[in-house]
Every structure is written in structure tokens, then in C-alpha cells.
Computed example of a mutant assay.
Amino acid sequence: MSTPRKVLVIGGGAAGSAVTILLRRAGLAVDLVEARSDWNATAGSGITLQGNALRVLRELGVWDEVEAAGFGFGSVGITAPDGTVLHVQEDLRTGGDDLPATVGMQRPRLQRILIDAVRASGASVRLGTTAVIVDQDADGVSVRFDEVSAGGSDSSSDNGSAHGSDASADAERRYDLVIAADGLGSATRAAIGIADRPEPTGMAIWRIAAPRPAGLTRTDLAYGGPAYIAGYCPTGEDTLYAYVVEANRDRALIPAGSHADEMRRLACAYGGFWPEITEHITDPAQVNHTWFERLLVEGSWHRGRVVLVGDAAHCCPPTLAQGAALSLEDAWVLTQLLTGSGPWDDTLFQAYYERRIARVRPVVEASVQLGQWQLDGVRDADVPGLMARTMTMLRELP
């Protein structure tokens, strides 16, 4: 009986969790290593999942849990700053007619669903641990593990078994393949000689989770006022996340203790449901402030037997809500290729890149363009046309 190929996945976010689940289902031995000891289980406010993301979540076997935990809807409203609804656009069902166009949900809830699925897959998990590429050749990669916090092994009795994880064992291991899913600031990407780095687009976003007012059943976007965009998305029976987008400001000049005041100052200028939402913007620890950034690694997403997925390879502003969807698609496509009949070589990894870049590049470029039109004050921009063309493309299978 042959020994199954062994894969290391670095990073336990959406892309890393998804590729782990899919490879385990195909019978491969998979170790997942995550630098954060809490496995990102409490990070973030909310997330908007378009149909093409839901399609992959269904392939992972977690669609029922996502559907139950989230809030599905099928349209987006465009409002004036005072809350007057100017237009309601039906969303395209990019995952197919048997899935909702969009599901909003609390980001920690999605992460918990993926964590549970990784555990159930039988993958070995190490938390609070980083992985460093030592060397590689045509047959595999040698990796060193470094503990970054106590309790790195996911083996506590209240969290379930790590299915064979032994973080205290050998510090260096050999793998047939390493999949770098370690996010936008990927240390693995830099370590294998890919010099691309994320770049700011000129916008920043304030986000918060809040109670959902009665009658709020879809995403609404207000353009104009003191922010470029003020929007919200329902995430459950009684929850939402709200956000306002403005120009970049030097984060060093915005004390963390003022985050609620800063977001509330922007949000209080908007009408409709916003006064009810703004009442809950009080705790600066619950307000998240980040810049919009873009990244698109060109040429290839691998070096030898180390391959990038998700934000480690690409990211875009959330103007089309496609970040998580593209990352999940990466995991799905790469797994299809790895579990086919071809050898794990440059030809296979380049095929992965070429298949993904043709789909990812238009989304990144469109997402950046939507923001740039606002930064430039372009009043006659074909926003509906660009969005429609991009989302129609995403309806096709990746």
C-alpha cells in the first residue's frame, strides 16, 4: 500500500481551511499550521458571501451550517445620504439558481464552521506556530516549525482532538507540497522569492457589528456625504455589520481609543436605518479600521513545490465583496488539479495560475476601478455596467 502524499497548509483562514478539507476528502495527509493560537475564531465583524463563494462552501459540505447561521438576500439598494432609496438592483446569482445571490454572516461564525470542518476532516492542526521553508528540491520541501505562543497544539479537551497533531514533536518535517495560505502579508510568499507586496488604493474602511433594525433585509449603499460609501449588510436574525469608507488617513494619527468616535462622526450624517445603527457605535474595541489594498502576483503563484492561494496571491478592495469568494475558488481549483492524474510539477502549478489569473485579474481591476472613480470624482462612470460584466463572468464555474 503506497504512502499518501503529505501536504502542509500554512494559514487557517478561508483558503487554508478550504484546501485542507478538500485534500483530506481526497485521501491526502494534510497538516495545517496557523500562527494565531485562537485560530482567528473571534476576529472580524461581518462578511458578504456572493453566490460563487456559496458554491464552494457547498462543495466543502458546510452549506447547511452557513445557511442557518447567515442571512440570505437577493438585492442591493442605492440610497441618498438621507436614506431615500433611489434604486433597488436584483443581485445576480453567481453560484447558480439553486443558491441565494448573497449571504451575509458574522465572520467569526463562518470561521468557526470552517474550523469544525477541518477538525472533522482528520487533518493534523498546529496553532500558535509558524512554518519556515528550510529548503526544497524537485521532490519536496523541508519545513521548520517555530512556536509563537503557548498551547500551539489544537488538542485541548474543550476544543476537540487535533487528530494526531503533535506540535511538541520534531521541529522540522518534509512535505511533498506546501500551500501558502498565510494571507496578505504572507511571510512564505517573501521567503520563496516573490517580491510582490500589497499596495494601498487610497481608501480606508471603518467596520462594526451591531444589532439589525427591524425591516433591514438587504445591503444598502449610500454614496456621498462625509464618506465615499456608507453601507450595511444583514448577518443573521438580529445582527448586521455596518461600514463607512473614506480616504486613507495615517493610522498613527488615529488613536485606537478614538475609533468609535471617528466612525460615529461619519455615520451620524446618514439617514434611513443609520440612526439606529449609530447608537451602537460606542466601543472603540469593536470598531475595525483598515486600508483598502490591492495585490496581484503576476507570472506564477508558485516556486518549486510551494504554491500560493488566497490573499497570499491576490487581494482587492471589498467594493465587489469578492475577496473570500476568490480565495475559496483558489482552494477548489488547486485541489482539482492536485487530485487529478498529472504529476505535481511546474506544468501543473502553472496551469493553476493561468486558470485562476484569467478570473482573478478582472475582479481585482474592477474592484480597484470602482474606488478610483470615486477618488477621482468621476460622475458619469459606468458603475452598473462594470459590476454587471464582472459578476456575469463569475457565474461561470472557475
Rank of each mutant, 00 (worst) to 15 (best):
V148E: 00
R379W: 00
L216M: 14
V297N: 07
D98E: 00
A68I: 09
G74S: 02
L54A: 01
L114N: 09
Y270K: 07
W39T: 12
M393S: 14
G323Y: 10
H289P: 06
T188F: 01
D38R: 13
S2D: 15
L328H: 07
S168M: 12
T335N: 08
A120M: 06
T392K: 11
Y175H: 08
T84N: 04
V309W: 02
A53Y: 01
V134W: 11
D38K: 12
T235F: 08
S165I: 11
T129K: 00
V66N: 01
G44I: 02
A181R: 07
A358G: 15
T3Q: 15
H163E: 15
S161V: 11
E147Y: 08
H259E: 10
A313C: 02
I47A: 05
L32M: 14
G70R: 01
G164C: 09
V143K: 07
P226T: 05
R58W: 10
V307Y: 01
G74V: 00
P213S: 02
G340E: 06
V363N: 04
Y243Q: 10
D166L: 11
I194D: 03
S165A: 15
D166H: 13
A324R: 09
A227Q: 04
R144G: 11
L49D: 05
V148L: 05
P362E: 01
A14D: 13
V76Q: 00
I229A: 01
A29H: 15
R93Q: 12
D154C: 12
I78T: 12
E262F: 10
V368L: 11
P362W: 00
E396D: 13
E298Q: 13
G193E: 05
L386M: 10
G77P: 01
T201W: 10
L348F: 00
T290H: 14
V148W: 00
A117I: 03
Y228C: 03
A313Y: 07
G272W: 00
L308I: 03
S157T: 14
P318L: 04
E279H: 09
V360K: 04
W373A: 01
Q89A: 12
Y243D: 07
D146Q: 12
Q350V: 01
L337F: 06
L375Q: 12
S186L: 08
V56Q: 03
R144D: 13
A358F: 07
V30K: 13
V33T: 12
D158Y: 14
A120Q: 13
V118W: 03
A214C: 06
L253R: 14
G27F: 08
L326G: 02
A366E: 08
A117P: 07
P275K: 05
P108Q: 06
A190Y: 06
V363L: 03
Q111P: 01
P81A: 05
L394N: 06
L338D: 03
W63A: 11
R109N: 13
E365Y: 04
D345K: 02
L240N: 04
R218M: 14
R207K: 09
N159H: 09
E237M: 11
Q136S: 09
V368P: 04
I254Q: 13
D166E: 14
W332V: 08
G96V: 00
G340Y: 09
I281R: 01
P318T: 01
D135H: 08
V306W: 05
I194Y: 01
C315K: 15
R265W: 06
L334Q: 02
T278I: 08
S161K: 04
Y353I: 07
D283H: 04
D154V: 12
E147Q: 13
T102D: 02
V9M: 09
G236E: 06
A15P: 08
